[in-house]
Write a protein that binds this DNA or RNA. Structure first.
Lengths: 207, 207
DNA sequence: GTTCGATCTGAATGCATGTTCAGGATACTG
DNA sequence: CAGTATCCTGAACATGCATTCAGATCGAAC
């Protein structure tokens, strides 16, 4: 506890650097394509150190997963609390396609997570947790809007599932650079859907 | 050309068996987890034969990809031509979540394809082609309905993209056995969205 | 300054797996 | 039946990669 903020090479920081490098490599090469040597190179350390800190490659990947989860939570909360009402908050959600934040909007990573969740239990629970939390945020926004008589969904729970799923589906096209899909169009299409689902005129949402 | 339909062990059939085995293994273990030995075992042959027919593991995976593509086309056409009008056809599309056909509805395979498309060009083009074709089918059904004054979408092109994307998004949850998602709910949610998008009362669609 | 534990390295190890290959089996042709 | 091309196998080979490990280095405590 002597000079924790001074020593730039404190062991803790080294570990953190490796964690970030792991995420960066996963982003680039996917879970399946990530090798210990990639992580070490990206972090500027030796392979041995990666294993020293995380025990195994699988350990590093799992650690990256939970780190990702944390980042996502921080990110969503931060973005949403900057908005004042449900309408503005909904618009911000639609702009998530632009993905400025560190974790949100990194759709390729999401795809990777989904597939890994098919075969790996840690990934499965991480995904479920992320999804649940994300849908809870969306649900909160909608409930808020309903309470203020701004939104009038036929079935709020159904609308939440559909709007969350639609975002995932649009995200796939964004992640794959589908011709005809762009961050702007992503946001537009999603807000139009929200307009339909919640019975709100589109210009109220996107104006 | 002597007795092609008699010899149960004709070389062509062996190749086909391996192709099907490859798809089966991908379905189970994913693209990344599929090994030559898995394919050989599943097909009941030697590793050597797999390589003899397809040159390499990558060759076998690519061949599986195009075979999958063909299956999908056949499947969609077959399912849709059994319906009489756009309304019934739309309902059938919603029931794709139940996935009776050999390729359609095998959502895990779809997830795998998406992620492979991130890193592999063959997979990328296969996915794009499949997606384009699927959306064209959906677009045809909607146009038909518009022509018959059954559907009244605000913007048909947008609705096509949204309904296709929504199906993908719902498919993710189905593939991951998300609690709260089931083939029945998949179909219900999607038809409700179609009802909103196309300005058709829900009971007209699902009745 | 010495000691000791934590941190870190680079080379060695061992295994999993894709690919090659030499030859055997099978089926068609004349 | 003999000859030949295709089909098929099992073992050998090569390589990429995670993991281990013997020690070097660093930092804190005294």
């Amino acid at each position: 506890m002597s000079t924790p903020e001074l020593g730039a090479k404190a062991p803790e920081e080294r570990r953190q650097r490796i964690l970030e490098a792991t995420i960066a490599v996963i982003r680039e090469r996917g879970f399946a394509g990530t090798r210990v040597s990639d992580i070490a190179e990206s972090a500027g350390t030796s392979q041995g150190l990666v294993l020293y800190h995380f025990g195994s490659l699988a350990g590093a990947l799992t650690a990256a997963l939970t780190s990702l989860e944390d980042d996502f939570y921080v990110d969503v909360d931060q973005q949403l609390e900057s908005a004042s009402g449900p309408i503005e908050r909904l618009r911000l959600m639609g702009e998530l396609g632009s993905g400025q934040g560190p974790a949100v909007g990194d759709w390729r990573l999401w795809l990777e997570l989904w597939v890994r969740a098919l075969h790996d239990d840690d990934a499965r629970t991480a995904r479920e947790s992320l999804d649940r939390r994300w849908r809870a945020s969306l649900s909160d926004v909608i409930s808020e809007g309903v309470a203020l008589h701004l939104f009038a969904p036929a079935d709020a729970a159904d609308s939440v599932v559909r709007l969350a799923s639609l975002m995932d589906g649009l995200a796939i096209q964004l992640a794959l650079d589908d011709p005809g899909m762009s961050p702007a169009r992503f946001g537009q299409l999603w807000l139009e859907a929200a307009s339909l689902e919640l019975g709100v005129p589109l210009d109220t949402l996107s104006g």
